[in-house]
Simulated assay, not measured.
Amino acid sequence: MGLFRNGSKLINYLITARNISGTKPFQEVSIPVPWGVIRGKWWGPTDRRPILTLHGWQDNCGSFDRLIPLLPSHIGFLTIDFPGHGYSSRLPSGQYYDQTVYLLTVKYIEKYFQWTKMSLMGHSLGGITSYSYTMLFCEKIDFVACIDGVKPLVFRKMIPHMAKSLDRFVRNNEFAFDGTEPPSYTLEEMKRKVQAPNNNSVDLERTVYIMQRNIAPSKIHEGQYYFTRDPRLKVNPLFGFSQPELVENAQKVTCPLFISKCKDASYYEDKQNFYETLDVLKRSSADCDFHYINGSHHVHLNSPEELALLLSKFLEKYYVVDTQGGLKEEMIVREKETNSILL
C-alpha cells in the first residue's frame, strides 16, 4: 500500500495520525481537473455541500486532521491537497505555481460540483486563497473562515524579487522532471525540516500529520525518505496586488468573515497592511469575527482547541444545509489506491 510498503518502522511512525484522524470518519476522494486530479478528504455528512477547506504553503490536507474532529459533526468538510502538494497531481512542466493556480483550483472544484453557493475555510496560503476568491466572487460565498492568513501579501522591491524567482523556477522545473530522486533523509531529519519554517511553527510531534501525505521511501538509501511535493513550490509568486487595490476591494467582501491571527506568528509583510485592510472588512462584512489566538502559525495543528471553540460558534451561526453538491460515488478512492498516486 504505497507509503506503508517499505517496512514496519514507517507504519508505526505514521499510524498515530491515521488513528487520530479516524475519530471523525472521512473518505479519501479524487476530483478531476484539466492537469490531473485534486486529492483530499471528505469529512462528515456526504449528502450536502461541504465547506471547501484549503491548506497552507507546502502543507497538505493532513494539517487539518486535528481541527476538523473538534468542529460540529453535522457539517461536512472537503479538505483538499493543492496542486503539487500531498497526493494531488503536479502541474505540467514549465507551469508556474502562483495565486492564479490556486484560485483556478477552487473554480474547477466549484464547476465539478456545480455549486451555486460556496463556503470556504483556509489556513495561511489557503486562507489567502479563500479570501481572494471571496473578493472576486463574493455573491457566491456564504461565509469564509481564515486561519492566520487573509489578504494577499504585498511584496517590497517586486522587480528584483521577480528576477530571482524566474531564475529559481527554471532550475527547479528542470529538477522536477529530470527523473532523479530528491535528497533523502531519516525520519527524524524530516521531522525537523517540517518543523523549521515559520520559526519552528509545527510542534515536532505534530509533523507526522503533514509528512503522512508528503514523503516516500528512497529507492537509493535504505531507511531514508524524500519529499514528494513539487520542488517548484519553493519559488515565490511573480505577481501580486498593490495595497491600495486590496484596501479598495475589501469593500466588496460583504459576507460573514471569520479571521484568526496567531499571536506568535509573523505578518509576512508590513503589519500596517493587515490592519488597514481589516479596518475596511470590519465595516464591509456582515459580520467580521476577528480573534487573536494563542499559539504559532500552525496552531490549528498543534493545539486547535481554542480555535475550534471560536470557529464552531461562527459555523453554527452561519452554516446552512445545502443538499446540492454532495459527495459523488465516482470521487471515492478505495483503500488499495490510497498512498499510491505519487509513489
Results as ranks from 00 to 15, higher is better:
Gly2Lys: 05
Thr16Pro: 03
Asn19Glu: 12
Lys24Trp: 12
Ile38Ala: 01
Arg39Ile: 02
Arg39His: 11
Ile51Ala: 06
Gly56Val: 06
Cys61Ala: 13
Ser73Arg: 09
Phe82Thr: 03
Pro83Met: 04
Gly84Phe: 03
Tyr96Lys: 07
Val101Asn: 08
Met118Thr: 05
Leu125Lys: 01
Ile128Cys: 05
Val144Gly: 00
Met162Gly: 08
Ser165Thr: 08
Asn172Phe: 14
Phe175Arg: 07
Ala176Gly: 09
Pro183Tyr: 07
Tyr185Ala: 03
Glu189Phe: 08
Lys193Ala: 07
Pro197Phe: 05
Asp203Ala: 13
Ile210Trp: 01
Ile215Arg: 00
Gln224Tyr: 12
Phe227Thr: 03
Val235Glu: 01
Pro237Ser: 09
Lys252Leu: 12
Thr254Lys: 08
Pro256Glu: 01
Leu257Ser: 06
Phe258Gly: 00
Asp264Thr: 04
Asp270Val: 12
Lys271Asp: 14
Tyr275Cys: 06
Thr277Asn: 13
Asp279Lys: 08
Val280Met: 00
Asp287Cys: 12
Asn294Met: 15
His298Trp: 03
His300Pro: 06
Leu309Gly: 14
Ser312Ala: 15
Lys313Arg: 13
Phe314Leu: 03
Tyr319Ile: 02
Val321Arg: 13
Gln324Phe: 13
Gly325Ile: 04
Gly326Ala: 09
Leu327Ala: 13
Glu329Thr: 13
Met331Cys: 12
Val333Phe: 02
Lys336Met: 13
Leu343Asp: 15
